[in-house]
Design a protein around this nucleic acid. Structure first.
Lengths: 234, 234
DNA sequence: TTTCTGAATATGTCTAGGCATATTATGATT
DNA sequence: AATCATAATATGCCTAGACATATTCAGAAA
C-alpha cells in the first residue's frame, strides 16, 4: 500500500470513527509531514483525497477542517436492461411496439426539451425476459442530434443499446417515481390495472444538445434499484 | 484555472466528443509532458483525474486507454426529508405512531441483518408537510449498536435526524422500489388503497455493525428522486 | 513452433524545494 | 472603538529528478 494511502486511511479512521468530530481542524501539512516523516506533497495527496471524498474542506490559510456527514448521497447504477438480464442468466428480447417519425408536439417538446416542430423519433417497445414482459420503454430521439436514427428500424434491437454505442453523451439526468399502471400499460406488461410500477426517466445531453428522453416502466415486483455508498471511500 | 485542470479538460474533450474513441491509447506521460510543456507530474495529475472519473484506464507499461462509456451511473442524493421540506418553504413535523422495544423477530432480523433475539427499537412515524401526511417511516434501530436510543422517546423528533447527529456511519445501501398501498399505509398517509408508492429502504453500517434499517414510503404524487450525472466531471 | 527470459517502457510513487494566492491575525491609525 | 494596511500562514500548484513495479515485447532456447 502506498504511503499516501496509508496516511489517507489513518486520517480517515480518525474522522469516520468520530475521534475528529465535524469542525475539527487538522494539523497543517507541514506538521503532518513532520509527524508522518514524509514530504509535504505526499500529505497533500492524502488530504486531497479526503477532500475529494468530501470528508474535509480545505481552504488556504484557514486549513483543513472535518466536514459534517453528508445527508444521504449514493452512487446509483442504472444498468443496461439487456446486460442485467443476461448476467442473471435470463433470455432477453426487445420487441418494437410503435415507431413513428413526427414533428415534436407540445408533450414531446416538454419531455425532450426541444422546440415544438423539431423532428423526433418516437419509439415504444417491450423488454422481454424469459419470454415474459419485463419492462416497457417509451423513448423520444432528437433527430436533429441523431439523424442516422431515422434509417434504423429498431424492430428487435433495443434503441438504448444502439444509442449507447453510437452517440457519446456528456450528461444524464434520472428521475425515479412510482405510478399506477393505466389500462394501456397494464395490457402491454400483462399485469393488472393499478399495479404499482417503478418508472425511471432519463434525459441525455451531449454538450447542451438533447439527445434522447426515455421512460422505462417496471412492474413493482420485477425491479428494484440498489445504490451503495461507502462514506469516504472510493 | 490551474494547468493540470486545463490539460484535464483538453483531454476530456477529445474523449467525450469521440475524437479519441474507446480503446484509443493516449500518448505517454512523457510525450504529453513534452507537448504541453510541463512536468510529468502535472500530466500525471490530469490523467489521474481522468482515471478517477473512469474515462480512462491506466496500466503500467500498457499505457492509458480510453474506456467504453459506463452503462448508466448516477449520483443519487437522497435528502433529509425535513431539510428538503424546509428548503421548499413548507412546514414540517414528525409524528410518532408507534414505538416498541423488543427482541428481534424473524422479520426484524432479516431486515436489520442481526441475529434473532437482538434487542431492537421499532419505530413507526409520519412526516407531515404543511400539516398533511407526506411520508411514512418504518424504522428498526439496533440497540446493541445504539444503546442510548432506548432512552429517547422520539415523539416529535425524527429518528433519522437524531441518529445522523449522533452516530457516525461508514456505509449505506439504498433500495428503491414501488408498492401498492395496503389498507394500513393508505389510512396513515390519507390516500386511497392501491395507490402506487415509492419506497426507499436504507441500511446503515458502522464498520460491519448494523445500525439501522429504515423504509420510507411516499405516495406517488409526492416525491420523485432525481439523480444527475456529468460524464467525466466532478 | 512454443516457451521462457531479460530488456524496454509506461505508470506509480516519492522527495525537496519553489512561487502563488487566499485568508486570517495583528498592529497602526483614525 | 472601528477601520484599514500589512505580515504571517496554510493550502494550491508546480518543477526536475529519482527509484519501484507491472506489463509487454523481442529474442533466445528448447
Amino acid at each position: 500500500m502506498p504511503r499516501y494511502r496509508e496516511i489517507y486511511e489513518s486520517l480517515r479512521q480518525k474522522i469516520v470513527l468520530g475521534q475528529w468530530p465535524p469542525g475539527h481542524r487538522l494539523p497543517s501539512e507541514h506538521e503532518l509531514a513532520r509527524s508522518f516523516g514524509c514530504a509535504r506533497m505526499t500529505i497533500g495527496k492524502a488530504l486531497g483525497a479526503l477532500a475529494d471524498q468530501r470528508l474535509v474542506t480545505r481552504r488556504r490559510r484557514a486549513g483543513t477542517v472535518v466536514n459534517a456527514p453528508r445527508p444521504q448521497e449514493s452512487v446509483l447504477e442504472i444498468h443496461d436492461i439487456e446486460a442485467e438480464l443476461l448476467a442473471a442468466g435470463v433470455s432477453y428480447a426487445y420487441q418494437s411496439l410503435e415507431r413513428r417519425v413526427r414533428r415534436a408536439n407540445a408533450a414531446d417538446a416538454a419531455a425532450l426539451g426541444v422546440p415544438p416542430g423539431t423532428p423526433v423519433l418516437a419509439l415504444t417497445g417491450l423488454h422481454r425476459a424469459g419470454g415474459r414482459p419485463h419492462a416497457l420503454e417509451e423513448r423520444l430521439i432528437n433527430l436533429q442530434a441523431v439523424p442516422e436514427a431515422r434509417a434504423e428500424r429498431f424492430t428487435d434491437i433495443s434503441p438504448g443499446r444502439w444509442l449507447l454505442r453510437r452517440i457519446p453523451w456528456t450528461e444524464a439526468e434520472h428521475q425515479i417515481a412510482a405510478l399506477n399502471a393505466d389500462a394501456t400499460i397494464a395490457r402491454r406488461l400483462a399485469i393488472r390495472r393499478n399495479t404499482a410500477c417503478l418508472t425511471i426517466e432519463r434525459n441525455t445531453w451531449r454538450d447542451e444538445q438533447r439527445i434522447t428522453h426515455v421512460r422505462v416502466i417496471y412492474p413493482c415486483d420485477q425491479h428494484r434499484l440498489v445504490a451503495r455508498f461507502r462514506y469516504g471511500a472510493a
